[in-house]
């Protein structure tokens, strides 16, 4: 099959979220293609986000899974005080809409709400926005070729890492 139903796509996104909630990073990384795009744009002003990552700033911009692997390595390193007491995280994903983008690619739009409990400070933060996934079929398995995270509440309380959005 070269297309996904919205229900299948929702299950796929829920599985990605579950890996992050469990801080189970190896299966999370395995969901991405080696040349994946992972992009969280910044806000240009009150109402518009940055659109051209080569000319405008992003909160996170990576082309290549290797960068996500580096992020995971830092989190696990034992040498990052920001990652020493890991926050507890729960993602909620809804409003999943799929669109066949042709050539074995499915575009999936969704809304997310992530609650992050910072154990170190005993404070909880909510992050919310939209995801735009592009999924491709690789050897019979759906993989993430591109994930854009449109974070609505972008004033970051202290820190925000890949597992928090």
């Amino acid at each position: 099959m070269t297309s996904l139903t919205s229900a299948d796509a929702a299950t796929f996104l829920a599985r990605e979220a579950l890996h992050l909630d469990r801080l189970d990073f190896d299966p999370w990384l395995a969901l991405y293609t080696p040349d994946c795009l992972f992009w969280m744009p910044a806000w240009r002003d009150d109402g518009t986000q940055t659109e051209d990552p080569d000319r405008e700033l992003s909160l996170i911009f990576y082309r290549g899974r290797r960068n996500l692997e580096d992020r995971v390595q830092r989190i696990r390193s034992g040498f990052s005080v920001a990652s020493a007491v890991m926050p507890r995280v729960a993602h909620m994903i809804g409003n999943v809409v799929t669109q066949d983008a042709g050539e074995g690619t499915v575009r999936v739009d969704s809304s997310f709400l992530t609650n992050v409990h910072d154990v170190r400070t005993n404070k909880s933060h909510a992050y919310f926005g939209r995801y735009e996934h592009e999924l491709v079929l690789v050897d019979g398995e759906w993989k993430i070729a591109s994930k854009i995270i449109r974070l609505m509440n972008d004033v970051v309380p202290t820190m925000l890492d890949v597992y928090g959005v």
Partner: peptide, 22 residues
């Protein structure tokens, strides 16, 4: 310049969070 910036300076990057937590 932008790529060098994001990884180091952003609160969503790999260096500033270790400062602000301190």
């Amino acid at each position: 310049r932008i790529r060098q910036y994001e990884d180091f300076f952003n609160p969503t990057g790999m260096a500033t969070p270790d400062d602000t937590v301190c």
